[in-house]
């Protein structure tokens, strides 16, 4: 007997997290036209920060989220100012360098914390009855908070000066320069925002799975599928893409085989890129 309620709950949970991860990735691409392959490490760093604060420091998990926000943002500022700013004209070098820095952080964490799995306490303890099934409160909190973050981001982008500058640069960097927007500041802001949301999604992920130095890689790869499906550079596309990819993932793992985790989204991505490379809401990928 297939447990549709569980499938539905898992779907909403996983998809909300994918959306968070994907939005940061797509934002940096939309604004700077570069792939930030360090994004997965931001997820890991957020989870590690929360683990340090809660397990080692013995403090509240909400302080852990605060620490994750600071670390995720700080790391991306250093990365952007130290490296990316010098090489951002060449998207190949950016992709390679960000991936190499990912490896550096991953190996640094292996030295620092070992490879044994660590845990973050749930955001909210206990269970609630949903449609006759027991659901952990933590899962409900993760879904709700993910949407709070997404909502805050949408308000930030559409309602604040800094956010609108990001939008302007992603539409046309020349046009933005003409009306006096400093592209460098916008790039840096975008990297900070992306780092912060990735780190927060890392805490969420760690609160119902485990924390390990390599934990960010798979969510990042899945977010590739999400952003390609939705269209690279489109926030709306990422949201829709996340729920489609999340559905595919949950359906295959619960109905076909848990071993196939990660495979269907990648195959779906392949099909999308071949049939409709610009995605559902994206800009053209096929030139000339």
């Amino acid at each position: 007997m297939v447990n549709w309620v569980n499938i539905g709950i898992n779907w909403v949970l996983i998809s909300s997290l994918y959306a968070l991860v994907a939005i940061g990735f797509t934002l940096i691409f939309g604004v700077g036209n570069v792939l930030n392959l360090f994004h997965g490490a931001s997820i890991t760093l957020g989870a590690v920060a929360a683990w340090l604060v809660t397990s080692v420091g013995g403090m509240n998990v909400w302080l852990g989220i605060g620490a994750a926000i600071i670390l995720g943002g700080l790391f991306n500022v250093i990365l952007y100012d130290g490296l990316i700013r010098r090489i951002q004209d060449d998207h190949i070098v950016v992709a390679v360098v960000t991936l190499v820095v990912f490896f550096i952080v991953e190996h640094g964490l292996i030295i620092g914390m070992g490879t044994t799995q660590k845990f973050i306490p749930p955001l909210i303890e206990g269970q609630t009855q949903v449609l006759g099934k027991n659901v952990l409160n933590n899962r409900i909190a993760v879904v709700a908070l993910s949407w709070v973050v997404i909502g805050a981001l949408i308000v930030f982008v559409n309602r604040t000066r800094e956010g609108q500058a990001i939008l302007a640069v992603s539409m046309s960097d020349k046009g933005a320069a003409l009306i006096g927007i400093d592209a460098d500041t916008v790039y840096r802001n975008t990297w900070i925002v992306a780092g912060v949301i990735a780190a927060v999604s890392g805490v969420f992920l760690g609160s119902f799975r485990t924390v390990s130095p390599a934990m960010g890689l798979n969510p990042m790869i899945l977010s590739f599928s999400v952003v390609i499906l939705g269209g690279l550079g489109s926030i709306r596309g990422s949201l829709v893409g996340a729920y489609v990819i999340g559905l595919l993932e949950v359906l295959t793992t619960s109905l076909v085989s848990p071993n196939l985790s990660g495979l269907t989204p990648l195959l779906a991505l392949f099909v999308v890129l071949v049939l409709r490379p610009e995605g559902l809401f994206g800009r053209g990928a096929v030139g000339h």
């Binding site: 792939l35 998207h91 590739f224 390609i228 690279l232 991505l269 890129l273 490379p277 990928a285």
Partner: peptide
């Protein structure tokens, strides 16, 4: 596909 799309796929 161009640039980043080719890299990703």
């Amino acid at each position: 596909l161009e640039g980043p799309y080719l890299s990703l796929i």
